[in-house]
């Protein structure tokens, strides 16, 4: 079972990463910065549990808050740009973060062993779960409680006025502004919220894999983060979950024996979905997902 629990863990934190991008996509912001927030959450919570011996719950919370603080800061300059310029700017942010951790060396001796981030050698032994007797089903349950809470929060958000405001900004900024919506508040809030979710995802990722290095946070992961909600569909939060299950569970794990051809399939899938289901996998009639999870019309 441990293997399947492991896959569920992967699907869990990838879903959170996708949801962080989903929140921004609702406001029309295509952000590649999510991987930067993810990295901040991973390193911050890892440092807190490994170097300071802090409880995982607190470490994840603090890691997510630090990530959301940086997201808040990124949110302001991001207001001035959109479209491709925003993509380039957020890629630059993620690269700055990645290269910062690439150079971060913060080793502390604990029980005769040096622990902590070690530049290009990475940050090993983030073993809070195993070292504290957490069984695989404890870990997977914990991750999925977080995923469900975030899913529920975003689902609920989509059913209240705030969600309508986010979508209104995403549909037509000018019209939204004309009707009295404060773009600065909406966009910066979405960026901050997305950063918080990505920060939690990063913390869970670091503790689940027990090791992170700069290579864990490349542009490829940033692409996956935005691909999940786009591929799954923005109609509701479950599209992202569906896309993550499809990519991580089926394409990556299920088709491992295909080697490099898995990447070809991923590209092919995007082309097919964009052509036949431009509103995402969630609209595939076979599953009738959109009917299963009805969203209030706005």
């Amino acid at each position: 079972m441990e293997y399947y629990f492991g896959i569920l863990q992967n699907i869990g934190f990838h879903t959170l990463l996708g949801l962080s991008a989903y929140l921004l996509l609702l406001t029309g912001q295509l952000s590649m910065a999510q991987v930067g927030f993810f990295a901040i959450g991973a390193y911050a919570s890892g440092i807190l549990t490994v170097i300071y011996g802090i409880n995982i719950f607190l470490a994840l919370g603090v890691g997510a808050l630090i990530a959301s603080f940086f997201a808040f800061l990124v949110g302001f300059p991001a207001l001035r740009i959109k479209g491709l310029m925003l993509v380039i700017a957020t890629i630059a942010f993620s690269e700055i973060v990645r290269l910062y951790f690439f150079n971060l060396r913060w080793l502390v001796e604990k029980n005769g062993v040096e622990v902590g981030p070690d530049g290009a050698q990475g940050f090993r032994e983030i073993r809070y779960f195993a070292a504290n007797g957490w069984e695989p089903y404890h870990i997977v349950s914990f991750i999925w409680i977080v995923v469900i809470l975030v899913l529920f929060a975003l689902w609920w958000l989509d059913r209240v006025k705030a969600g309508s405001v986010l979508r209104a900004v995403g549909e037509d900024e000018l019209a939204a502004q004309s009707s009295g919506i404060n773009l600065t508040v909406v966009k910066v809030s979405a960026m901050t919220g997305g950063g918080f979710i990505a920060g939690i995802a990063g913390g869970l990722y670091a503790h689940s894999t027990t090791y992170v290095d700069h290579n864990s946070f490349t542009i490829l992961l940033a692409t996956f983060a935005v691909a999940y909600p786009i591929l799954g569909g923005l109609k509701n939060v479950f599209g992202t979950l569906f896309a993550v299950i499809f990519i991580q569970g089926i394409l990556i794990e299920g088709l491992r024996f295909l080697g490099d051809y898995r990447n070809l399939l991923f590209g092919l899938l995007i082309i097919l979905v964009m052509n036949f289901y431009p509103k995402g996998l969630i609209n595939i009639p076979l599953f009738n997902w959109s009917k299963l999870v009805k969203r209030r019309d706005i």
Binding site: E2, F5, I7, N10, T210, Y211
Partner: peptide
């Protein structure tokens, strides 16, 4: 790393 861990498990 993720894939290596998945295989180990």
């Amino acid at each position: 790393a993720e894939q290596g861990i998945a295989i180990a498990r």
